[in-house]
Write a protein that binds this DNA or RNA. Structure first.
Lengths: 181, 181
DNA sequence: GTCTAATTTGAGTGTCGACTCAAAGAAACA
DNA sequence: TGTTTCTTTGAGTCGACACTCAAATTAGAC
């Protein structure tokens, strides 16, 4: 049976891992650094995680899940709502957004499974945006709606990338402008 | 005075570094791997480069320079031409494009100077696109042209990111579509 | 309180990284 | 050919990394 203490330590370790990833990327997230920040010794880390990879993947999953919150109801998405929640995620959790982007770019190189995962995730998002677009303008053809949403998402991703490099960049207004066009 | 042999070895080393970076990212570009691929021993590497960093930065500079070729003449850029050369770079040299993107994302985290560099480079590109847009449509206000070009470049960057994750993605047609809007 | 199982300790292992250097080997030029 | 300078060799250093484990400590059930 698990102790309460173990779960608390686990959380401290995950927090430390997330912070280090956000601050200095994969390079900074060494087991030693994670343990120091979490106030724990290596043995304790390995009592709770099988490997460093496991801790890091836990954070990545967290990031992936956080980008797209569960829909409130079937077909209830509005375009503004979707864009808004994307913006809120990137500006509100730049740490997770950064980890996601970083792992998407570098991880996909070495690990084809990671690339597939990211692309599948992207595809699902395009569909969700497309449905919202069709709902707003039923006159649009399905493929035309999809094409436009691909463009919208590409621009959103481009702006998000800019924002993560330059926190002064006003991601919010730029994103909203995209909807006006 | 330098021997001819040294220069040739230097090129082999840089080639090996570029390939390894493109194939497996920073992680794969170890001195050992670089030397093996270049058919050289570590001592020879360090006779020509002060550090591994120096070799890698040489590749990055190469990538940065290659994105934006020299203008053919003052104010001679057309929007289609600019987009076209961006597409050609990304699809023609995905190795360099990948290295650039990777370093922009991960390097900017640990190294603020890198972030500044990337942003300055981006700013210059926006200006170049803006001037081309103004040339095509002199009725446009300067700030409106700049705003639109920021959006165009964001979408281009987003599409480029997609292409680098998925070589089947048709970057060319998507990029051209952006101009039609 | 006592017993048991979960947790933490912290010194330690093996591996792989960047980088060094004295000595051997070519190139260039007289 | 002899000399000098440039280049390559390859064994070796040193530090940092992920990860281990027996022993000590602590928490929870009875």
């Amino acid at each position: 049976m698990t102790n309460r203490a173990g779960a608390a330590t686990r959380q401290r370790i995950l927090e430390a891992t997330r912070d280090l990833l956000a601050e200095g990327g994969l390079e900074a997230a060494t087991v030693k650094a994670i343990c120091e920040r979490a106030g724990v010794l290596p043995g304790s880390f390995y009592n709770l995680f099988d490997s460093k990879e496991e801790a890091i993947f836990t954070i990545i999953r967290e990031a992936i899940t956080a980008v797209d919150p569960d829909p409130e109801g079937e077909g209830s998405d509005t375009l503004t709502g979707l864009v808004d929640s994307y913006v809120k995620f990137v500006t509100g959790r730049p740490d997770l957004a950064r980890v996601y982007l970083m792992l998407a770019v570098t991880g996909s190189l070495t690990d084809p499974a990671m690339a597939k995962r990211v692309l599948r995730h992207h595809g699902a998002r395009v569909e969700r945006f497309r449905d919202a677009a069709l709902h707003a303008d039923p006159g649009l053809s399905r493929s035309e709606a999809e094409r436009r949403m691909e463009g919208l998402l590409a621009a959103l991703n481009g702006y998000a990338l800019h924002f993560l490099l330059d926190p002064d960049f006003d991601f919010g207004s730029h994103a909203i402008q995209l909807l006006a066009e």
